[in-house]
Design a protein around this nucleic acid. Structure first.
Length: 483
RNA sequence: GGCGGCAUAGCCAAGUGGCUAAGGCGGCGGUCUGCAAAACCGCUAUUUGGGAGUUCGACUCUCCCUGCCGCCUCCA
């Protein structure tokens, strides 16, 4: 496996810290609002990374934090007239609703800043004792000049940054690039006691404290959006390595941005789409598929037309699966012909290509291409074989399910079997029975060549969002999609 | 100002120093079907923003230009 490492600016062979195990930390959201599509990209992508490691047989420990106290939360709470900690708790819950919808698996640990204040204080004390941090009137700053490697992740030197700095400088800082580890509380703000007086953690320190606590130094993979490279991740490295004297993380991965009209989607520009809103228009699984259809380091332009186009492709995969699982309940033969063997060999080939694509820096876009190849091979096979070979069919479903285990574009049961969610109609049993009844009536009409009646039923159901397909194995129906 | 990235068909999007430049959407033609839908088959980039260079050979490497974008400030 090769991974593009932001730290070295090139693809590197992945060698885990411990054989067969992967330790991953991904920067999670600051919980002051619903998440938007830009937040969803790293979520979905790193979930896919994790899934792929699991698919490859690695034992994965996956940690994703919540930054549940900081300036943005406090400001938002003031606007809303709500307690900051209550507000962030609320958005943690909302976060899970969106993440679950996007079929993002829960992390093994979802640490929150407010539950790790002790760890953070201990880490800051260590930094002060080692001469890497200093106290100023209840604030604690990290001394960037004490850390020789500062700038190694973002590829800049302190001199360069000072030359280009556009920030007003706090005169108490030794260097303009020094950043806060601990912020003294202002009146009315949530605060925790500390050796330097009541206050709260600065923005970057929590990720160092929590990742070191749960994953240890020199853990395997640290991920997040491109915009976190500087200063967030640069600062994490400085703090962590200054404290432990060991390398912090081995591989750094950063996803590119979601853009809108080619411009970065961001909260400050106001051009963001909440996952909550997008879910109204599209299946969240389609959104997930769309997010994975571009390589993670490339920008991805978001607009409804493009998601809709992706949705039509996704539908093709879904149709293929429906046909496959339908065939499993039909007539099958045990005999394996030479044609079956050739087909099985092609399946194996596609599976290999899929894995090769994923092995190459998680190229989900390429991998999805092979997913389509699989669907086409399978559709053709079923079209050609009136009575398909059981082994071939079972193998097809196995490969299909395996790909989905990685990409997560269809819901599954606990065993990983794909569940097409529109089959058990949400309308309930009565509606289902009525549909079945109508289909029987239509079938009778068809056998009498009463096409007018048959078509009237089909058109009528279509208007109600029920799509009918006549196949050699009989008529089947599905819910039309809303987008 | 400093640092970095991107430019592939109508749209989305991979890949490669020489072998047919994947795949998807859309479109067109066909097969199947009572008609549809779904599916399948064929066609849809003699060419990879523009120019120069390196090379036997570049879309892929180098330089220049153009256009777009990002980071340097909260941001995934």
């Amino acid at each position: 496996m090769e991974i593009y490492n932001t730290l070295t600016h090139r693809k590197e062979k992945f060698i885990p810290r411990e054989p067969g195990k992967v330790y991953i930390y991904v920067c999670g959201p600051t919980t002051y609002n619903y998440i938007h599509i830009g937040n969803a990209r790293p979520l979905v992508f790193f979930d896919t990374v994790r899934r792929y490691f699991q698919y490859k047989g690695f034992q994965v420990k996956y940690v994703q934090n919540f930054t549940d106290i900081d300036d943005k939360i406090i400001n938002r709470a003031i606007e809303e007239g709500e307690d900051p900690l209550k507000l962030s708790q609320r958005y943690v819950a909302e976060y899970f609703q969106d993440a679950d919808a996007l079929n993002v698996k829960r992390a093994d640990i979802h640490p929150k800043v407010t539950e790790h204040i002790e760890d953070i204080i201990r880490l800051i004390e260590t930094l002060i004792n080692k001469g890497a941090a200093y106290v100023r009137e209840g604030d604690v700053f990290f001394d960037v000049q004490s850390f020789p490697g500062y700038g190694k992740l973002s590829g800049r030197s302190l001199d360069e940054m000072l030359a280009g700095a556009r920030v007003e400088v706090d005169p108490r800082k030794k260097s303009p690039m020094d950043f806060a580890l601990w912020k003294a509380a202002k009146p009315g703000e949530p605060s925790w006691p500390s050796p330097w007086g009541p206050g709260r953690p600065g923005w970057h320190i929590e990720c160092s404290a929590m990742s070191l606590k749960y994953l240890g130094a020199n853990f395997d993979l640290h991920g997040g959006g491109m915009d976190l490279v500087f200063p967030h991740h640069e600062n994490e490295i400085a703090q962590s390595e200054a404290a432990t004297g060991e390398p912090f993380a081995r591989y750094w991965m950063h996803n590119g941005f979601i853009t809108v009209n080619q411009e970065k989607m961001s909260k400050s520009l106001g051009n963001f789409f909440l996952v909550r809103e997008v879910r109204q228009k599209f299946s969240p699984l389609v959104v997930r598929f769309f997010l994975l259809s571009t390589h993670y380091r490339s920008p991805l332009d978001f607009d409804d037309e493009k998601v809709a186009a992706a949705g039509r492709g996704w539908e093709r995969l879904k149709n293929s699966f429906r046909t496959l699982s339908g065939a499993l309940h039909g007539e099958l033969r045990a005999e394996v012909t030479s044609r079956d063997r050739k087909y099985l060999a092609r399946l194996e080939n596609i599976r290999g290509q899929f894995e090769e694509a994923m092995d190459d820096d998680f190229n989900t876009a390429l991998a999805i291409g092979f997913y389509f190849d699989l669907a086409r091979e399978a559709n053709t096979y079923l079209q050609e074989e009136a009575v398909p070979c059981k082994e071939a069919l079972v193998k097809t479903l196995e490969v299909f399910t395996g790909f989905n285990q990685v990409l997560g574009i269809f819901h599954t049961d606990a065993q990983g079997n794909i569940i097409l969610d529109e089959q058990p109609a949400p309308e309930g049993e009565l509606a289902q029975s009525l549909i079945e009844l109508l289909l029987q009536v239509r079938q009778e009409a068809r056998s009498k060549k009463d096409w007018a009646t048959a078509d009237r039923i089909r058109d009528g159901l279509k208007e109600l969002g029920i799509i009918i397909e006549d196949t050699p194995q009989g008529t089947r129906w599905k819910k039309g999609r809303a987008g």
